[in-house]
Each structure stands twice: as structure tokens, then as C-alpha cells.
């Protein structure tokens, strides 16, 4: 059974983040793979044998608790070492980095250190529809989503940008969005909600292909194509 592990839905699930898990499970099932969503809550052990690990959006206090518990648990580190995919969104993206800040006094908190990025409070909050270009295995692919973050993220040498911004703020208004680890390209962080895998099915399939090591058949959907058309048109208007 392929496990899609949602890390702490009650802490890091503020923006419909469970939708990303539902998309992955459903797209696996459509290709004949058995898959289940494992919603790990604080106090539960994180499975070490997951296929994909998801971290989502949450508030400051939730970020601190999540980092502490993931470190104490340790299984997420073992899982990525043995080839699992880690896909982190928004607050989740910040906590997989080296450091991030919380609170009015910008207290610096150590992250999981899985992605070479550091996040500090930005000059203004980035809120709104975002459109980026992802250099996917099959070429340029538009990523549509909704960003909502106060932190600005700077990439270190060990990370490269995940996408280039057409509309929106992204990492820190420098034209880049998200990050991929150079040492382990199965660790990806990004800001957009939407949820992002709902609006960008090709990214969802890419994560699954990374995790499974196989190529997946296409799943044409007029409904998803239309959603993408609408969101791209809305943000470019």
C-alpha cells in the first residue's frame, strides 16, 4: 500500500492542504496503484515507509510545534533518506528550511534543515493569485495558485528555484518561486495554495513519478483543463 503521509493536518492544514493528499491518492488509484492517505496527528508516530510526505500551511505557533515534533519523531528524515518525496507548501516550505522567523519580535527558529533556504519576515505580506513557470520534464508548465505568506525566502547554494514568477511575489519578489534541494531533488518546497496539486495536475504526477520511479499514463480531464484556463486568465487579466 502506497502511503501519502499528511504531517499534522491539525497544525499544517490551514488552507485546504489535505486537498493535495486527496489528489495524489486519487491519481495513483486511477493508474491502478493502491494508495491510502495517512493523516498523522501530533502524538502519532510518523510512518517511516511513506511514498510522499506533505507539509502544509499553518500559523506561527503551529510551525514551532510541528518542527519540534517532526525532529523528535525523526522518521521524516529516515524516509527522505530512503527515497521518499517531501513536498512542502507555504509554512511547510519554511519549516523544512534552515531557519524561519515567527511572532512580532521575529524570533528565529531552526527548521528541519532539509532544504537550504532561510525565511525572514518580508517588507509586506504576499497575498494573491500567483502564476509561475515550472521547467517540467516535458517543458514549460504553468503553475497556478494562491500565495499568502509574510515570510520572504532566500535560497542557499544547496537549493535551486522551483519555478520562475510571472505574476505574484514568490520567494522574495526576486522572480523565483519555491526550491528544490540540489542534493536530493525529491525535496521540494513551494508557496502556492489552491491547493497547488489540484490546480496543477502535472506537478502532482511529477511527484508521483519521482516517488515511484516509473512513468505514469496521462489522465486527461476537461474539467481540470477548464479550471486551469480560468485561473490563468484571471491572474493575467
Amino acid at each position: 500500500m502506497n502511503k501519502i503521509v499528511v504531517c499534522y493536518q491539525s497544525l499544517l492544514g490551514l488552507y485546504g492542504d489535505r486537498g493535495n493528499a486527496m489528489v495524489l491518492r486519487s491519481r495513483l488509484a486511477a493508474r491502478g496503484f493502491d494508495a491510502e492517505i495517512v493523516e498523522v496527528e501530533p502524538g502519532d508516530e510518523v510512518p517511516a515507509d511513506g511514498l510522499v510526505y506533505l507539509l502544509g500551511g499553518g500559523e506561527d505557533a503551529a510551525q514551532i510545534s510541528a518542527v519540534r515534533m517532526l525532529k523528535e519523531d525523526g522518521n521524516i528524515f529516515r524516509a527522505v533518506d530512503s527515497g521518499a518525496v517531501l513536498f512542502a507548501v507555504c509554512a511547510g516550505y519554511q519549516i523544512v528550511g534552515n531557519t524561519f522567523t515567527v511572532g512580532d519580535d521575529d524570533q528565529v527558529i531552526d527548521g528541519l534543515g532539509l532544504l537550504d533556504v532561510d525565511t525572514r519576515r518580508g517588507p509586506e505580506r504576499a497575498v494573491g493569485e500567483i502564476l509561475t513557470h515550472w521547467d517540467s520534464p516535458t517543458g514549460d508548465y504553468l503553475i497556478t495558485g494562491f500565495e499568502n505568506h509574510g515570510g520572504f525566502t532566500e535560497l542557499g547554494k544547496g537549493a535551486k528555484a522551483f519555478a520562475q514568477v510571472e505574476v505574484g511575489i514568490g520567494n522574495r519578489a526576486d522572480g523565483t518561486e519555491g526550491a528544490i534541494s540540489r542534493t536530493n531533488p525529491k525535496i521540494i518546497g513551494t508557496y502556492p495554495h489552491g491547493p497547488v496539486l489540484v490546480r496543477n495536475p502535472q506537478l502532482a504526477d511529477y511527484l508521483l513519478e519521482l516517488a515511484l520511479g516509473v512513468e505514469l499514463d496521462e489522465l486527461p480531464s476537461e474539467e481540470l483543463d477548464e479550471l486551469r484556463r480560468q485561473r490563468v486568465a484571471a491572474v493575467r487579466r
Partner: peptide
């Protein structure tokens, strides 16, 4: 609310 991600909650 401008972000409809909540539909998934």
C-alpha cells in the same frame, strides 16, 4: 475570501 482553497476543508 479570495482564496478558495477552503473548499478542500
Amino acid at each position: 475570501g479570495k482564496d478558495v482553497s477552503w473548499l478542500w476543508d
